[in-house]
Amino acid sequence: MDIRDNGPNPNAFDLETATVENRFYRQVAWTGKYLQVTLMSIPVGESIGLEVHPDTDQFVRLDAGKGKAVMGPEKDDLNWSQDVSDGWSVQVPAGMWHDITNTGDEPMRLYVIYAPSHHAPGKVHPTRAESEADEESGADEPPEWTHQPE
């Protein structure tokens, strides 16, 4: 399925099909002024990567595979965990350290809704390493027209 981020314009697509067919670590599917939709594919044994977003809430939904979600107030205090699989959602409050690891035997396919937008519109990261490099270099920033916290 061909997805093109046309944000902040109206958009519609088959989200479940797009998520299941996505082969990239992360693909930004739509960027709005106040939220953003990304598709992710996590290989067997890998994870989204332990991270925290001080001003961004996240909604994560698995459409294929299974994993283990962890969260906590500190990087070394992940005191919440939940096994998740196809159809499960995970809500990540802003400021909460979190990770989801693929514990299954197939790629874990999920989509993430960020509020506010967190990535550059239309950005495609084939691998987690490319995503991390873009974040470190500042090449993966939300556009100026999005609403961002002070």
Rank of each mutant, 00 (worst) to 15 (best):
A120E: 12
E74L: 08
D86I: 13
T101D: 04
S81A: 14
Y111F: 02
D83A: 15
D77V: 12
R109L: 03
W97L: 12
Y111M: 00
P116G: 10
G87Q: 14
S85K: 15
D83E: 13
V84N: 03
V90I: 14
I113F: 01
G95M: 06
V112M: 07
T103R: 04
N79Y: 09
N102E: 08
A94D: 06
T103M: 04
S117W: 01
V90M: 06
D105E: 13
G104N: 04
H98Q: 06
D105G: 06
D105A: 10
D83N: 15
W88A: 14
V112T: 06
W97P: 00
G104V: 00
M96K: 04
D77G: 04
L110K: 05
N79Q: 07
S117C: 11
K75S: 14
P93T: 14
V112Y: 01
P116L: 10
D105I: 00
M96H: 06
E106T: 09
D83I: 11
S81W: 07
R109H: 05
S117M: 11
P107D: 10
L78E: 14
S85T: 15
T103H: 02
D105F: 01
Q82S: 12
G95A: 06
D86L: 08
E106D: 07
T101I: 11
E74H: 08
I113V: 14
W97R: 10
W88C: 12
E106S: 11
S81Q: 11
L78K: 05
V112K: 03
G87D: 09
I113E: 08
M108D: 05
H119L: 13
P116C: 05
D83K: 15
D77Q: 08
S85Y: 02
S89M: 07
D83W: 04
